[in-house]
Computed example of a mutant assay.
Amino acid sequence: MTAFEPGRLARVLAELDASEGPAQALAQLVRQGLDQLPLPAHGATWQRWQALSVVAEHDLSLVKLVEGHLDALAVQAEVAPWADRVGGATWGMWAAEAPGERTRFEPMEADEVRLHGRKAWCSGAAHVSHGLLTAWSAEGRGPQLVRVAMQQPGVTVSRAAWHAVGMAASESLDLHFDNAVAHLVGDEGAYLQRPGFWQGGAGIAACWYGGALQLANALRRHVAETAPAQRQPFRCAALGEVDMSLQCTAALLREAAQWIDDHPTQDASAVALRVRLAAECSATRVLDEAGRALGATPFCRDQRFARMAADLPVFLRQSHAQRDFAALGERVAAAGEAPWAL
């Protein structure tokens, strides 16, 4: 893995063809080797999160695909480091389970299996070359990770259920498998049991944070470009609240990344839940304060602001809201001592 170069990544993003979608942008980043980032818990988690934040500030639908691609690479490196890698591939990482539905697999020879059934919420499924997903045996054992090449007769992509406005370009579509060829990756249950499950989950916070930065910078530029004598106090106050919120979340992100690097095999669930909830709260506050301070103008006349304002609330719903607060509270109560002393 190479060291993250924020300047290079920002330049490549700025040069992307705006007429192309996020899937084409992901392929371009892969061709330039910009997906070769440090793995979580390998000493440079902060650099990995910086990259996610930079991409998110540019385009949330793109970072949705980039994060899935990077997660698929990290998962395979963790649970099946001996497996052959597919050079130049673009990956989707699909582990969501629709209520009452599971993708099933039947063993064939060696590590080959056949997939059947539906998989929902598959971001980028219409365009990526390969998918890494969770499936279940006919006897109900699992989850079991499998990798599948997307360009084959047994794989069908359906847009019938996708009616999104926010995050529309991420195309989180349904997949239907009918005897599709796939291969087992790692052991049964490895996806959830590995330390990287929560380490990777914490990285979503960097995506939410990056999306909030675009809106915060729109507010900052408006205030900075207004002559001091003409600045409205309520806009300055909004910028102050945004700064405070983002600075707090950035500090927590840095601390979480360092903790993960210092404790690579420990349970990172409390750390991940805390930083995700903080980023969600911060992003929500930035969206609210920037909108109230700037009024309707950027929502109607600034294409990038308007799209981010539509995308960010949808992406934030990857959080489980009060259920995540409850899960964090359970872990704090079980820790044995208060974690808040300076």
Score class of each variant (00 low, 15 high):
residue 131 G to M: 03
residue 79 V to D: 04
residue 177 F to K: 00
residue 32 Q to F: 04
residue 203 G to L: 11
residue 310 A to S: 14
residue 20 E to W: 01
residue 145 L to W: 04
residue 44 A to Y: 02
residue 239 L to E: 10
residue 318 Q to I: 06
residue 89 A to D: 01
residue 133 L to Y: 02
residue 187 D to E: 14
residue 338 A to Q: 12
residue 287 L to F: 07
residue 16 L to Y: 01
residue 184 L to P: 02
residue 214 Q to L: 15
residue 69 H to R: 07
residue 271 V to G: 03
residue 305 F to R: 07
residue 193 Q to W: 01
residue 45 T to S: 13
residue 148 V to F: 06
residue 287 L to N: 05
residue 199 Q to L: 11
residue 140 G to Y: 03
residue 225 E to L: 15
residue 243 D to K: 11
residue 104 R to W: 12
residue 86 V to H: 08
residue 284 T to V: 08
residue 106 E to V: 15
residue 102 R to G: 05
residue 248 C to F: 11
residue 58 H to A: 12
residue 4 F to Y: 15
residue 322 Q to K: 04
residue 80 A to Y: 07
residue 281 C to F: 08
residue 74 A to P: 00
residue 44 A to S: 09
residue 196 G to L: 13
residue 21 G to S: 03
residue 251 A to T: 08
residue 78 E to Y: 06
residue 209 Y to E: 00
residue 319 S to I: 07
residue 137 S to L: 10
residue 189 G to H: 06
residue 112 E to C: 03
residue 18 A to S: 13
residue 205 A to D: 00
residue 195 P to N: 10
residue 211 G to W: 07
residue 138 A to R: 14
residue 181 V to K: 12
residue 64 K to S: 11
residue 264 P to F: 04
residue 128 V to C: 10
residue 18 A to P: 03
residue 251 A to E: 13
residue 252 L to H: 08
residue 9 L to Y: 06
residue 328 L to N: 05
residue 251 A to N: 11
residue 197 F to E: 07
residue 217 N to M: 14
residue 132 L to R: 05
residue 122 C to K: 05
residue 183 H to W: 15
residue 65 L to V: 01
residue 214 Q to N: 09
residue 208 W to D: 05
residue 7 G to E: 13
residue 302 D to T: 12
residue 329 G to I: 05
residue 114 R to L: 14
residue 54 V to P: 01
residue 284 T to N: 14
residue 312 L to I: 09
residue 19 S to L: 10
residue 39 L to S: 04
residue 258 Q to N: 04
residue 9 L to C: 06
residue 331 R to V: 04
residue 6 P to I: 04
residue 93 M to Y: 15
residue 254 R to S: 07
residue 307 R to T: 13
residue 230 Q to N: 13
residue 219 L to R: 00
residue 308 M to P: 02
residue 226 T to E: 10
residue 121 W to P: 05
residue 180 A to I: 07
residue 157 V to Y: 02
residue 120 A to P: 00
residue 120 A to Y: 04
residue 12 V to P: 01
residue 43 G to V: 04
residue 296 A to K: 08
residue 223 V to A: 10
residue 97 E to T: 15
residue 86 V to M: 04
residue 59 D to Q: 02
residue 108 M to I: 08
residue 36 Q to H: 11
residue 29 L to K: 03
residue 176 H to S: 04
residue 298 P to G: 10
residue 125 A to W: 01
residue 137 S to E: 11
residue 120 A to H: 09
residue 154 G to Y: 10
residue 321 A to K: 12
residue 341 A to Q: 14
residue 25 A to W: 12
residue 258 Q to R: 15
residue 43 G to F: 07
residue 154 G to A: 01
residue 179 N to Y: 11
residue 89 A to S: 06
residue 89 A to C: 05
residue 151 Q to H: 12
residue 341 A to C: 05
residue 124 G to Q: 00
residue 241 E to M: 12
residue 32 Q to P: 00
residue 153 P to G: 05
residue 290 A to S: 15
residue 27 A to S: 10
residue 41 A to K: 02
residue 289 E to G: 01
residue 37 L to Q: 11
residue 326 A to S: 12
residue 142 G to R: 09
